[in-house]
Design a protein around this nucleic acid. Structure first.
Lengths: 156, 156
DNA sequence: GCTATATGGTGCGATATCGAACTTTACCGG
DNA sequence: CCGGTAAAGTTCGATATCGCACCATATAGC
């Protein structure tokens, strides 16, 4: 019986990095000037999980340093896509709210992506894609749970 | 019979982005100060495919703008991990060579990652991971082939 | 050959990322 | 209450990313 082969992780991470790069390029090509992938990720997160999240919650969700989140939120606020208001339950923190414009902007971007995704969906075996999704989700959760394996970033 | 559902792409890209973030954090935690993931990607690429590649080849391989590649290579050169010499076959271009230190540095990083990957490999179902690898590779190649779907970045 | 155009690479400016340090508020033990 | 520590958020400085413009060389059409 052979020991587990960690090389598989290495190779998977390699593929994932390239796919991330390519998919991000597709997304950003459909986003308005001045907005990039992290901005969309925030709009999307707030729409799906509900707004009123705190910045630190979102930094943890995306596994980015909290300073990066501050910067991203500042950009969204500048474009009037979100509002940041004090958190009445905790004087240290804030809560992030989508503006109408923010909700609309997300919808517009998703609509703009429609043809691209349809193009891809027509040409790729969607069964196989559906098949790997649960494993990717499992892997994401697993890595997330074990992220303290390495020195924690400043997201805490 | 239903039409293909492009939403799957959306969800997969979302998972991939988070996994990329988490795996990059693991990698960079094991890299020496001043070096980050793209530096390692280049060292790795040159080791596996052989050195003597041109910068533009590598920019295309990683799907990054050529100016980003210039910057990354400059960093590697500064640390004496690569040499860049003129390309005798094309006066416009250069070729990138690994130094001994460069080869060693890659080996050191991989060795440092060993325990982390082993830790993960012991706790995750490697069969399932192996199972999704071919699909990820297929997806990567597919997206790469269709990258001109969107306005090309300055990698050409 | 000569001109036009394409290609490889770099410089530069704008923005993004991120770690360290700091401020403010919360919480905990006494 | 009060001091000590922890947590949320921002500021700041260093580096990364990337589009645009540019230079040098190559290639194609004539």
């Amino acid at each position: 019986m052979s020991k587990p082969d960690p090389t598989v992780f290495f190779e998977i991470f390699n593929e994932v990095a390239i796919i991330e790069q390519l998919s991000r390029t597709i997304l950003e090509a459909r986003m308005p000037d001045g907005l990039i992938a992290p901005h969309f990720a925030v709009l999307n997160h707030l729409t799906r999980l509900g707004d009123g999240r705190t910045p630190i919650e979102m930094a943890r969700a995306f596994q980015v340093p909290k300073t990066s989140m501050t910067h991203t939120l500042k950009g969204l606020e500048l474009h009037n896509l979100i509002d940041m208001r004090p958190n009445p339950e905790d004087g240290r923190s804030k809560r992030v709210w989508l503006t109408d414009k923010g909700r609309q902007q997300r919808a517009v971007i998703i609509a703009a992506l429609g043809p691209d995704l349809a193009f891809l969906a027509e040409r790729f075996d969607m069964k196989r894609l559906k098949g790997i999704k649960p494993v990717l989700t499992e892997l994401r959760i697993f890595l997330d749970e074990n992220r303290d394996m390495v020195r924690a970033a400043q997201t805490t």
